[in-house]
Amino acid sequence: MAYRIKVLIVDDNSSITYSLEKGLKSISSQYEIYQAHSGRDCLVNVQQHKPDIILLDIIMPDMDGWTVVEKLHTDKTYSNIPIIFITGKADEISQVVGTMSVEDYIVKPIDIKDLDMRIRRILNR
């Protein structure tokens, strides 16, 4: 695995993105974190930083997580980036895992150690 792990965290709640960044960085110094707070913001960031993995919130005001995934999927350059959904409810999400590039999901409140484990697992594949 590459030394630096580039993670893009997308959530309209900046406390979430902030705390996730702090948390991941405290676990490992490999993490290079970028934040986005809307769907459009996310797409821009993807183009700019080309992250290794995206943590994507589902419920966002301008564009929900699903639309973002669809939009990413249209461009071949970015359609391969693995995505972890962040959600409050597990049920509906579990069905979509495995489609497009959605690899996994994680439920709020988020356990940082758990998240780290999932990221590594996905990127090691």
């Binding site: 979430i16 409810k89 409140p109």
Partner: peptide, 16 residues
Amino acid sequence: HDLRTPLTPIMTLLPL
């Protein structure tokens, strides 16, 4: 459900 959202920063940052 909505209460979970603020819990994430709380639970993440306090240990830090």
